Simulated scan of single mutants.
Amino acid sequence: MAGENAVLHAQERTGTGKGAARQARRNGMVPGIVFGGDVDPLPINIPFNELIKRLKAGRFRSTLFTLKIDGHDDVRVICRDVQRDVVKDLPTHLDLMRLRRATKINLFIHVNVEGEEESPGLKKGGVLTLIRPEVELLVTAGDIPEQINIDVSELQIGDSITISDVKLPQGAKPTIDRDFVIATLSAPSGLRAEDDDEDQPEAGEVPTTEMDASDDA
């Protein structure tokens, strides 16, 4: 998650209860509530089209948003629930939680690659594959990194970088409890094809395994 937080625009909802919520939906809005942070809950409406766009982009519940509401200070929030229509599967209500600086949350953090120009494997034509362009980390809301960096300057063909090779920001840790791969450096496709051809027997040549079997007979 590089750069500034994603932005959600909302309006304060003046009415409460089922009637006000139904009216909001008729007006093309999705009702919601903002809670937490030692502040009274705030009823809001979010434009339906904007919310749908965010939901389709994925990872809505693990993305940190800056919530902008006219007449209120901007606040950092994370989604805690999205209620949907049981038939149409469309959002009907959402809960957003204000974040204190000490709050621990899971977020997907952007992976930045360094050292590509120095990598001996890349100089030989190797192909760098970023298996995980983002890594989900448990972080503190007051100290969220814009990115984590991986250094490929010493990678040879066949090498890989796992999460244990990465220096994580203080207080951050992976949500996956194993040493997973982030990036690999593999041989170019042409070189891999040549290696495969070398493994195939030439026309008329008997594979070693068949020769061994005939000798045993």
Rank of each mutant, 00 (worst) to 15 (best):
A2Y: 14
E4Q: 09
N5F: 08
N5K: 05
L8Y: 12
H9Q: 13
H9D: 04
Q11Y: 10
E12G: 08
R13N: 02
T14W: 11
G15D: 13
T16S: 00
G17D: 14
A21Y: 03
R22M: 15
R22G: 15
Q23E: 15
A24L: 09
R25I: 02
G36Q: 08
G37A: 08
D38G: 10
V39M: 02
V39W: 06
P41Q: 05
P41E: 06
P43Y: 13
I44L: 10
F48G: 07
N49F: 05
N49I: 03
E50K: 13
R54E: 08
L55F: 08
A57Y: 04
F60Q: 03
R61I: 00
T63S: 00
L64K: 00
T66A: 14
T66C: 14
L67Y: 09
L67M: 04
K68N: 06
I69R: 00
D73N: 01
D74R: 06
D74F: 03
V77R: 03
V77T: 02
V77P: 00
Q83R: 09
D85N: 09
V87Q: 11
K88W: 15
D89R: 09
L90A: 13
P91Y: 05
M97E: 12
L99F: 10
A102H: 12
K104V: 01
K104W: 01
N112R: 07
E117C: 09
S119V: 15
T129K: 07
I131H: 04
E134I: 01
V135W: 00
G142E: 05
E146N: 04
N149R: 03
V152R: 14
V152M: 06
V152I: 14
S153C: 03
I157P: 06
S160K: 02
I161P: 02
T162S: 06
V166E: 09
K167Q: 11
L168S: 07
Q170A: 04
G171L: 12
T175H: 03
I176H: 03
R178H: 06
A183T: 06
A183F: 06
L185I: 10
S186H: 11
S186M: 13
A187T: 12
G190N: 14
A193S: 05
A193Q: 10
A193F: 10
A193L: 14
D195T: 15
E198V: 09
E198A: 14
P201E: 04
A203C: 03
G204S: 15
E205G: 01
V206P: 12
P207M: 12
T209Y: 09
T209C: 07
T209E: 03
E210T: 08
E210V: 15
D212K: 10
S214M: 13
